[in-house]
Design a protein around this nucleic acid. Structure first.
Length: 496
RNA sequence: GGCCCGUUCGUCUAGCGGUUUAGGACACCGCCCUCUCAAGGCGGAGGUCACGGGUUCGAAUCCCGUACGGGCUGCCA
């Protein structure tokens, strides 16, 4: 393991794992894998109001499901813990003390109201809205007196005013330069003694020795501020790589109104971890412009920061669906049945014991259904008729079109009598060769004959392949269903 | 308002000054296959590379503007 390469994913447990967060985690993970580095999971739970332990559990579950395992973090441990920000307060205190000792921060006694009115005034004049640094001019003795007297105060970082600009090289965006005039002496410690985000994130990344900060580009503009913290703490700068955001189909930030946004919901809808992984990897990164199907190994073998796109990417559910089918068709019968089982149980199609007992039979459904679905959640609807008894629900319009025909009864009569005589193994090819004799026998079109049998046996004009379905149903059930279907047919001309 | 960033088929992208009549994938259309639906095979349509100026023998590729979109500008993260 290359311990010089250390990356992290730092979600706030204020909700489930978002698709965008998952991609950020994935890129960090892939980068760590590529360089045999260390992937750290850190939970940014400083927002007491919105942070919930169950959200942390949910995020952890989603990361695991996607196969994004971490080397250090909750449940994994590690030498640079704790990995919950709420348990790291002494680290932030220590860092602040160091900044006080080195004179890189100063106390600010301006009240929020004061600050607000200053800001509003500046806004009205359309001039610089940052802090005017009035408390920076305070004599240290005066500041001490005020602190001693218990006057509420924050601590602000003392920016190096002599600098013209702060510049850094982003691995994705290239060189970024921000004029010093755009930066202010931002607060690092609040009146209540809690540290602010731009301070904590730096202390954490420094103490965790993060070498590459790979995160959303909403932090691009925050980076210069954070560089100031690194410098004040005399810490070496990490490499920065910012990821543009993921958008919905309308070009706006991906949100609830675009449909599912949580990794959890994609799992529930029956997307495969491998497929979501592949899709997310390609949402903003490409290996060569032509390869679209890549497994985890392919991705980690080729993943480089310089091939990450600067453009925001629109999340395309249709392409994900297509990709999921590709993976469904490749996963194999056994894995398929395993993945399907929770859905079988949920819809009470089978019990756990029946699943085990009928495993081979269930595996037989795989090749029929895999190329007809996009997600696991669609399997039950497509295959429900394979689970019923002699009497099944039939789709009204299918009955109308196929069974109410004057020739339907004759078709079923013939089919039943021919199939009843089968004493070779009940197989799809055998069934097919028998049924194929009916059209010429009755002088009907093959399509008509097969559709009548299909509706009789499956209940619908649209079903999985007919002969294979009949094989799976077994001889008895097929005949019983056809007999029941006959009760829905009008009397044939021959009989009337 | 200020600053920062982005802009190649509907979508994801390839492209890093000449090999480009801009390539691939999803979606779309047509044909073939066919017991339905799919899947698969073959083919097609779709981009004045946001726009306008430069630089250059030559620009999607470099530079400058404009437009549009996004981010930051909090004692939120």
């Amino acid at each position: 393991m290359n311990t010089d390469i250390r990356v992290r994913f730092a979600p706030s447990p204020t909700g489930f794992l978002h698709i965008g967060g998952a991609r950020t985690a994935l890129y960090n993970w892939a980068f760590a894998q590529r360089h045999q580095g260390v992937f750290v999971l850190r939970i940014e739970d400083t927002d007491k109001e919105r942070s919930l332990p169950e959200h942390t559990a949910q995020i952890i579950q989603s990361l695991r499901w996607l196969g994004l395992t971490w080397d250090e973090g909750p449940e994994a441990g590690g030498a640079s813990g704790p990995y919950l920000q709420s348990e790291r307060t002494t680290l932030y205190q220590d860092a602040l003390e160091r900044l006080k000792d080195s004179g890189r921060v100063y106390p600010c006694f301006c009240s929020p109201d004061e600050l607000n009115s200053k800001r509003e005034a500046a806004q009205a004049k359309k001039s610089y809205t940052g802090y005017d640094r009035s408390c920076r001019a305070l004599l240290e003795t005066e500041a001490q007196v005020r602190i001693q007297s218990g006057m509420p105060h924050t601590w602000r970082i003392k920016l190096p005013l002599e600098r013209e600009s702060i510049e850094f090289d982003d691995e994705v965006f290239g060189r970024i330069a921000i004029p010093m005039t755009q930066l202010d002496d931002f607060i690092v410690m609040r009146t209540d003694g809690t540290p602010t985000y731009n301070f904590v994130v730096c202390v954490d990344d420094i103490t965790m020795q993060i070498s590459h900060v790979i995160r959303g580009d909403d932090h691009l503009s925050n980076t210069p501020k954070q560089i100031m913290v690194y410098e004040a703490l005399d810490a070496p700068l990490p490499v920065f790589a910012h990821l543009s955001m993921i958008l919905g189909s309308d070009g706006k930030r991906l949100s609830k109104r675009h449909g599912a946004t949580s990794v959890e919901s994609y799992e529930e809808e029956g997307f495969l971890s491998d497929a979501l992984f592949n899709y997310l990897a390609l949402l903003g990164w490409s290996m060569d412009g032509t390869t679209t199907l890549m497994n985890r190994k392919d991705i980690t073998a080729h993943f480089t920061l310089d091939r990450i796109s600067k453009n925001p990417a629109v999340f395309d559910p249709e392409k994900l669906a297509w990709m999921n089918q590709v993976y469904l068709k490749e996963m194999g019968a056994s894995a398929f049945v395993d993945a399907w089982t929770p859905y079988l149980l949920a819809d009470k199609l089978l019990t756990q014991a029946e699943v085990a007992q009928k495993r081979r039979w269930l595996e037989g459904i795989y090749p029929l259904v895999a190329e007809r679905i996009n997600t696991l959640s669609e399997i039950n609807a497509k295959s429900a008729y394979l689970f019923g008894g002699a009497v099944i629900n039939r789709d009204d319009s299918s009955v109308e079109k196929c069974l109410k025909n004057k020739d339907s009864l004759a078709v079923l009569d013939t089919a039943i009598s021919l199939l009843a005589e089968v004493n070779t193994p009940w197989s799809a090819p055998a069934i097919e060769s028998i049924l194929r004799t009916i059209p010429q026998q009755l002088e009907q079109k093959p399509k008509f004959v097969f559709q009548v049998v299909r509706v009789a046996v499956s209940g619908s004009m649209v079903s999985l392949p007919l002969f294979e379905s009949m094989e799976l149903l077994g001889k008895e059930l097929c005949i019983q269903r056809m007999q029941h279907a006959q009760t829905l047919c009008p009397e044939s001309e021959a009989c009337s």
